[in-house]
């Protein structure tokens, strides 16, 4: 039996687009591809991205966790969107 390496967590690069200019829509769409509890790496260079990402995740029921550069954060998908 051959052990297989787990596939790397998906990432999204939102470049210089901030959450104050619509980047949350891209992140939301990427999160929909993941199961609840799945991790999405977010990278980007918009000012205040880490602050806004943490606040947005909190409000949406997701979790933001520290991530090594070049990622800004890991976003852990919450269950709120699946319960409708």
């Amino acid at each position: 039996m051959t052990a297989t390496a787990p596939s790397p967590a998906p990432t999204i690069d939102i470049e210089d687009l901030g959450l104050d200019r619509g980047a949350h829509l891209l992140i939301k769409r990427a999160l929909r591809e993941l199961p609840v509890g799945g991790r999405l790496g977010v990278r980007g260079r918009a000012p205040d991205l880490a602050v806004h990402l943490a606040a947005w995740c909190r409000a949406q029921g997701h979790r933001a966790e520290p991530a090594p550069p070049p990622l800004v954060a890991w976003v852990i998908r919450g269950s709120a969107e699946t319960g409708r």
Binding site: D20, A54, W56
Partner: peptide, 17 residues
């Protein structure tokens, strides 16, 4: 508060950028 910075930009109290 952190989330209100984002809110104030989104609602137009603070212009983006």
């Amino acid at each position: 508060i952190d989330g209100n910075h984002l809110l104030f930009v989104n609602e137009g109290t603070l212009p983006p950028g």
